[in-house]
């Protein structure tokens, strides 16, 4: 664990006020999955939504630049890769380290078939939003059910 309590610091320059959620503090480098193994910590966390036309995948990736992010689709799987370097300036001392750094890769199965050609990804203020248009066949799967009265 790289997180060091600020109270351990010989300088003891800082003391955190808000201790309510201190148990949640647990900064660590991003786990780089070993070859063939899946990362145990799922990063980034994903929120996935859909409407009639699209599937939307959203991830919080603050400080990750566009050039270091890679979004790809293979079959029904969406993969997001990226990295963030957090280098300590020369002569500086780290007093608290919670932000994740390193490389990550995450793959999720998508709920429907996607029109890969029209996928768009946007990064704004550290939030990545991937818009995945559903393929025609996936949209056509929605079958309207009518009552027997209407049908007869």
């Amino acid at each position: 664990m790289l997180t060091r309590s600020i109270f351990d610091s010989p300088l003891a320059t800082l003391a955190e006020m808000d201790r309510l959620f201190d148990t949640m503090v647990g900064g660590a480098p991003l786990p780089m999955p070993a070859a063939g193994a899946r990362s145990r910590v799922l990063f980034p966390a994903l929120n996935i939504y859909e409407d009639e036309a699209n599937v939307y995948a959203e991830a919080e990736l603050p400080g990750f630049s566009l050039g270091d992010l890679d979004v790809s689709i293979a079959g029904d799987e969406l993969t997001i890769r990226g990295k963030r370097q957090l280098n300590l300036p020369e002569g500086a001392t780290s007093l608290r380290r919670e932000r994740l750094a390193g490389e990550f890769e995450r793959t999720v199965a998508l709920p429907v078939e996607i029109d890969v050609e029209r996928v768009e990804a946007m990064l704004a203020n550290g939030v990545l939003l991937i818009t995945l248009p559903k393929s025609r066949s996936a949209q056509a799967r929605k079958i309207e059910v009518r009552s027997a009265h209407e049908a007869s």
Binding site: T13, F21, A92, S94, L100
Partner: peptide
């Protein structure tokens, strides 16, 4: 939510970095 922060003692200054995705 409680953002993740890094705090650095850079000799001449204390630097605080906070991940605040989605803010402006």
């Amino acid at each position: 939510y409680r953002p993740h922060v890094d705090i650095i003692d850079a000799d001449a200054a204390i630097e605080v970095y906070a991940d605040l995705p989605g803010a402006t």
